[in-house]
Design a protein around this nucleic acid. Sequence first.
DNA 1: TATTTTACTGCAACAAAGTTGCGTTAAGCT
DNA 2: AGCTTAACGCAACTTTGTTGCAGTAAAATA
Lengths: 126, 126
Amino acid sequence: MGITRKTKAVKKLLSLFEPTVSAILAVDLIAQLKEEMNKTTVYRILDRLENEGIIHSFVGSDGLKWYAKCTGCSSNNHNDIHPHFQCTNCKKVTCLPVEIKIPIVENYTIENAAVFLVGKCNECSS
Amino acid sequence: MGITRKTKAVKKLLSLFEPTVSAILAVDLIAQLKEEMNKTTVYRILDRLENEGIIHSFVGSDGLKWYAKCTGCSSNNHNDIHPHFQCTNCKKVTCLPVEIKIPIVENYTIENAAVFLVGKCNECSS
DNA sequence: TATTTTACTGCAACAAAGTTGCGTTAAGCT
DNA sequence: AGCTTAACGCAACTTTGTTGCAGTAAAATA
Ligand SMILES: [Mn+2]
Ligand SMILES: [Mn+2]
Ligand SMILES: [Zn+2]
Ligand SMILES: [Zn+2]
């Protein structure tokens, strides 16, 4: 189950997540890998890696899809529930290593929460 | 500034938000109004109403745009910051009238938060 | 190492959401 | 009623993402 074959394409794509802690836009990955693989392949590999628990995805405030490395997830245990932050200045998106406290609201049984925060990162707030 | 002319189209669109507390998908509005106005018109009216502080928008977990009525906003004061909830069963999306407690995270100055909650609504959890 | 199997990839065509330009219509003011 | 211009319809376009199918290559088997 999952990524059964570690092809050149899979290795190449994974290598782009290595040097950074930031999340990466799916669209940016496609642009960056244009010479090396087809966009269909990029989307398919992202799908598989996410099912494997190697990366996770979320949607930004503009509806675009972001991907970032997981820490300690597997295919049957995706426990990477944390807020994501975007800097309004440098536009970088990062995973915040803090717990989300799921609110208790009457008449609603809340099972999951997606939190997208916006503000200024340390480097950009001079 | 804002909606200067209350046309038939504007009145009709606003009337769809009246009978419900739920949010409405932009795409659903377009489908529902297909016979009465063009989709371009729908998008343009939604834009204007949002700038006026009459409705507010947010993005669901699938990247689609939702709109809901504002309560007590104006064009220069959009203070409708609350979580949104989607029921996994009936798919309805509602505005939750609770305050979002913006987390304090070192190295990040958080200015805004979008919280999208998922679970079961009262009607659907038998 | 040669053969075989099938997971993976490329391509082209498609789908859905949303935007833009421009000519036409109608809201609402005099 | 006539005038001005905000608002509208339409078609064409952009962007993101998906699908079907034929061809390729990773890796298992012999
Ligand atoms: Mn993350
Ligand atoms: Mn709301
Ligand atoms: Zn920054
Ligand atoms: Zn429900």
